[in-house]
Design a protein around this nucleic acid. Structure first.
Lengths: 219, 219
DNA sequence: AATAATTTTTAGTCTAGTCTAAAAATTTTA
DNA sequence: TAAAATTTTTAGACTAGACTAAAAATTATT
């Protein structure tokens, strides 16, 4: 079944929202990320539900179906591989590549993506540390994930960092974030994706999304 | 002024048609290449004329304006650079890359194209021997062009070939196409782009587009 | 030059994807 | 738990870009 750019975007965004919660995804949340109005989202959800890509009940939010998740993972795979290309081969900084990858992820050619994957030496994560699904849609078992990708309420152990700039490591020290620390996310703020974090059972402290992305944890 | 995929495609196709004639381009010719109906083309030409990208007079055909040609050359530049990438870096054959490049040519990022250009070592031609415009929209002076790119009625001298497979060179010999031969195109068949060619003043013989693309001439 | 054939344009329709305004359902608050 | 606030949906409208059918203009043919 043919799929449009718009549909691909909706699926990708529902996937992204699903990554950080196990609840159903709300119309408003999708509207914000797609930059559309809620009414437009409702309409699209109805259509995608008919195509079998999402499970959608009026007023109850939405969830990807298995078929929808497969498509979403394929788009995520393309997005992240292109990001690796842009950073490793084209010399972009990791903070410059998102918009371009948003365009490249819609290029349709399985062969191209396989060749790109090989050309990049089969990377397991993108420049931001996010895992790259394989062509079957399976996420690599990394043994760790960025703290930023851990769902709310879950706990894990700090096992590494994705960056080793001096300023970053100094900040970790100041926050009392050491290797082996037990971490639990108590809140994720939608506005800036900053995270309230309980460290070794102490009262939660606030850390930025930027920091959370570079802290690697094992569940 | 924002430009859509559809508009970019029309401009590119009008440019391509202009390359092999100095006449105004007909609605039907555009319809065939865009795979649209003539009525749709008329409509689009009217709109693009209002935006100043083409000079269009009802029933009289169309021609790119200076602004339109600038845009078209930019798309052609992107298309051809991506083709080089696909062949030289991704290992595609030169006959497999067109459809993918048709998609990639619409990616919007000047910086990316500049970096790609550098990454590819500033190629002057694409894998088919077609010249790659620079970022100002200027075509490189190659000193030669593929015979397939020579306008009808013009003459030139055979100065080289773009391929040296045995079968190709044997065919040239059979056709009496030698270095230094004086060539004049007497007809281009729209159906298969095959070319009627007068060699050293002899009666014209027919050669395929495939051959014409690999024969290099100096005007 | 008149007629026939072809090309191009006009007029009206359709779909995808968006929007606004208002109605309906759900959630929060007092 | 009733009222208020918020979220979501419905209904109807709009635009870009396509289409078909018929009319108009151009080109080719007797």
């Amino acid at each position: 079944m043919a799929i449009s750019f718009a549909e691909e975007n909706y699926l990708k965004i529902i996937y992204r929202l699903s990554e950080s919660t196990s609840d159903d995804i709300s119309t408003n949340a999708i509207a914000e990320l797609t930059q559309n109005k809620a009414a437009s989202v409702t309409d699209m959800l109805r259509k995608m539900s008919e195509k079998g890509w999402v499970n959608y009940q009026k007023y109850q939010g939405v969830r990807l179906s298995e078929a929808g998740e497969k498509i979403a993972l394929d788009i995520v795979r393309k997005h992240r591989l292109w990001e690796v290309f842009l950073v490793n081969k084209m010399g972009f900084n990791w903070d410059e590549v998102h918009e371009i990858a948003e365009q490249l992820e819609h290029i349709e050619s399985e062969v191209l993506i396989d060749k790109l994957d090989a050309f990049l030496d089969y990377p397991r994560t993108d420049p931001h540390g996010d895992p790259i699904p394989n062509k079957k849609g399976e996420l690599p078992q990394l043994g760790y994930i960025p703290l930023a990708n851990m769902p709310m309420g879950k706990a894990g152990k700090l096992v590494g960092v994705a960056q080793d700039s001096a300023v970053f490591l100094q900040l970790l020290t100041k926050l009392n974030l050491k290797l082996g620390a037990n971490l639990e996310i108590t809140e994720i703020n939608a506005f800036d994706l900053s995270v309230s974090l309980r460290i070794d059972g102490n009262p939660p402290v606030l850390i930025s999304h930027e920091v959370a992305k570079n802290v690697l944890i094992k569940r």
